[in-house]
């Protein structure tokens, strides 16, 4: 099996091909430098993303509180995590860095406030 990726480690944006067999990487080609290979391996074997969104608030001048997942979650957990985010409602005070949900959707990552919430 072959996977085609665009390296995002620098503006050059090399097109990288990863040859796979039984879940193992056979070859990585198309990258111009070693960073590209590192990116491609991570992206094929264990792709991760930071999810950023907002949660509902009560009793605050702010209608939404911005949040993010820390550390990055597996890419295929993005929508399960969004479902959890949608259920949250927070009240002030909240400060940047406060944990809103521990171990969100069983990812091992926390949902953390990226803004302050005042009354």
């Amino acid at each position: 099996m072959k996977r085609e990726l665009t390296c995002i480690s620098c503006p050059l944006g090399c097109q990288i091909s990863v040859e796979m067999e039984d879940g193992n990487i056979i070859s990585v080609t198309g990258n111009t430098c070693p960073r590209g290979e590192r990116y491609a391996r991570q992206e094929v074997l264990d792709p991760r993303r930071t999810v950023t969104s907002t949660v509902e608030t009560e009793d605050s001048i702010h209608r939404r509180l911005p949040v993010k997942t820390v550390p990055e979650i597996p890419k295929d957990s993005i929508f399960p995590v969004m479902n959890e985010i949608r259920k949250q409602c927070v009240t002030p005070p909240v400060s940047i860095g406060d944990v809103i949900v521990h171990d969100i959707a069983g990812t091992g990552s926390d949902l953390v406030a990226t803004g302050n919430l005042t009354e």
């Binding site: 930071t50 950023t52 911005p66 993010k68 940047i96 990226t114 803004g115 302050n116």
Partner: peptide, 9 residues
């Protein structure tokens, strides 16, 4: 890597 509000903060 920060979000916009964190960077402003």
């Amino acid at each position: 890597e920060l979000t916009g509000p964190e960077y402003a903060g």
